[in-house]
Amino acid sequence: MEKQYEKKITWTIKNFSTLQSNEIYSDHFVVGDSKWRLVAYPKGCGGGINKSLSLYLDVVDSESLPSGWKRHTTFRLTVVNQISEKLSQQEEGQCWFDENATSKGFSAMLPLTKLIDVKDGFLVNGEVKVVAEVGVLEVVGKSDVLVETLLLHESIDVNGFQVLPSQVESVKTLFDKHPDIASKFRPKNPHLRTTSLNSLLSLTEILCQSPEELSIDDLANAYSTLTCLTKAGFKLDWLEKKLKEVGETRVQEIEEELKDLKEKF
């Protein structure tokens, strides 16, 4: 009988062949009342060092959980074969995570010789895809805070900002296009960070509209929001330029509309 898992995520590791880090991490995700992440060792670790890709499931912020906490967990990790899924490499585990064992997985997930050979189908266009399926069977030491703040909203960490699943792609695209956008962002409070990021996303959505859909008040509010976000530390030169262009276009359109009205009367 096929096992049932609470959560299934796909992690795409880009530019795998040129990675310099000994270990890399996926975005956080919530299962049960805890935050989790995947940890990959591109050059292996433990018994798999310099021989295999090592892949682990890791409890995030375990120090914030109550003393004596435990999570009985079942999980399945898959390195996807992008030519034929039938050839994907898959490993399963079922065990307890606790204060002394916050990370579980496989040191020899996939031989590096197979992984880096593009003919084998695991490395395509520089990307390696990993699928994780996770289910929590039993909880000892429940975290009410995580239940209230994370489970209900299922926020996900993207570049240090907590975002909703529906926002993940937009935020990732934003950081891919502008990697240094938050390099000088000052607020540390997670609520302020989330509020600021939401304002930025709203602003980018507004500027995706055609100029004729924006009123002068809309543009004034956009400038005000941009000023606040810039003062908070976001690097938004590119957005300021776009807003200026939209504003100039809209002013020209309004002037033309007024000219047409004058000619009619």
Rank of each mutant, 00 (worst) to 15 (best):
K142N: 12
K244D: 13
G68D: 12
D27H: 10
K242C: 04
Q94Y: 13
E253F: 03
S155E: 10
A108P: 02
L197T: 00
F161H: 00
K241M: 06
G93V: 04
E6C: 02
D33R: 00
I116A: 04
L174W: 00
N125Q: 15
V79M: 13
A101E: 14
P190Y: 08
L239S: 06
H178P: 05
V124I: 15
P66F: 01
E148K: 11
Q82S: 12
T173H: 06
K188S: 11
I156N: 08
K188E: 14
N221A: 03
L19V: 10
G68V: 11
S143H: 12
Q167D: 06
N189G: 02
R193K: 02
M1N: 08
H178D: 04
T10F: 04
E148I: 11
Y223I: 03
V39P: 07
T227R: 06
Q82D: 13
V145A: 13
F75T: 09
S107W: 10
E63V: 15
A182E: 05
H153G: 10
D180I: 04
Q90L: 15
V118M: 13
G135Q: 08
K119F: 13
T225G: 04
Y223A: 13
F97H: 08
G32N: 08
L207Y: 01
G247A: 07
A108R: 15
S88D: 06
G93N: 05
F97N: 07
N81P: 13
K86M: 14
L150P: 03
L87Q: 15
D144E: 12
L239F: 07
V136F: 09
N22S: 11
L219H: 03
S199P: 00
V124R: 14
K35W: 07
N81M: 14
S202D: 09
L55P: 01
K119N: 15
K231A: 10
G105W: 03
N15F: 06
S224D: 11
S183M: 02
M109A: 04
P66L: 02
E63D: 15
V128I: 07
K70T: 01
G105C: 04
R250F: 00
G135D: 15
P66I: 03
S64Y: 08
V251Y: 07
A40N: 00
E92I: 08
W11Q: 02
K188Q: 15
T225H: 12
V168P: 03
S183A: 00
V39G: 05
R186Y: 02
L201C: 11
L201F: 11
F106V: 13
E133P: 05
E148L: 14
L137C: 03
T249N: 10
S17F: 06
D176H: 10
L123W: 01
P190N: 07
A220T: 14
D218H: 06
S67F: 11
L65I: 03
D61Q: 14
I24H: 00
V79F: 14
A222Y: 05
V136E: 12
S54W: 09
F185H: 06
A222N: 03
D144M: 11
S34W: 02
V60R: 11
M1G: 12
F175H: 08
V251N: 01
N15M: 08
L53S: 07
Q90H: 10
F161M: 02
D176Q: 11
L55Y: 00
L200P: 09
Y223M: 09
T73V: 15
